[in-house]
Write a protein that binds this DNA or RNA. Structure first.
Lengths: 104, 104
DNA sequence: AGTATAATATCGATAAACGATATTATACAT
DNA sequence: ATGTATAATATCGTTTATCGATATTATACT
């Protein structure tokens, strides 16, 4: 059977995938990337981070490409790129829907 | 002490507030509004809906303005408008951050 | 009065976030 | 080679949200 996908991403998940679209990296590098890319607005602690990495590996949005001591490096997969692109569409739809209404 | 706010909104919460920005209404009207405004992409069932209404009333994003039999009508508050505006900013920031990177 | 309908409310299970803490592997100093 | 610091990952426990299913309640219409 085909592999399971996540029907939508949460904010931290979205930023984690964004990191891997930028480049392959390990967990702590993801956390740093997200913090910087979001200008310090989004902080992902270890609990959330490694939970998401496990989940993403389980659904094949990322795959491990290197282990060096404790350090595990992941790279995004085609499935991961698709999920990321779909999430961008979903987010943009939210903005469009909001702008259908009155300006507040 | 000042009243508690939600630090961020989920997708269904965002669409519920969007409904009240449009006009005062009751629960089932909210569900219909969200379905239509999102072109059928977002469906909020009763469990999620009334959980969110209770939460929003508790944090004063909406207030009850009429009860007619079972039907309870709510209107958005100033606090609710602020939360909605902040959420739009947050969502737009996600897109901006995504577009800082490579086009995929 | 009895039945249909509209609207709200609740149950129970699943998923996610997150601070705090623990574990593990390497590097560096003495 | 031992000890200590550091980097990186992993897990615990609590809280919050979603959501399908089902139940409850109030009104309207025979």
């Amino acid at each position: 059977m085909p592999q399971k996908s996540l029907d939508k991403l949460t904010e931290p998940m979205f930023y984690v995938l964004m990191a891997f679209v930028h480049s392959s990296m390990c967990g702590t590098e993801v956390a740093d990337f997200v913090f910087q890319r979001s200008s310090g607005e989004v902080k992902i602690g270890p609990a959330t981070l490694y939970t998401i990495l496990s989940k993403f590996e389980a659904v094949s949005y990322i795959k491990e490409i290197d282990v060096d001591g404790r350090k595990r490096t992941y790279e995004i997969t085609d499935r991961g790129r698709v999920a990321y692109a779909e999430e961008i569409i979903r987010i943009k739809r939210m903005i469009r829907d909001a702008e259908k209404g009155e300006i507040i």
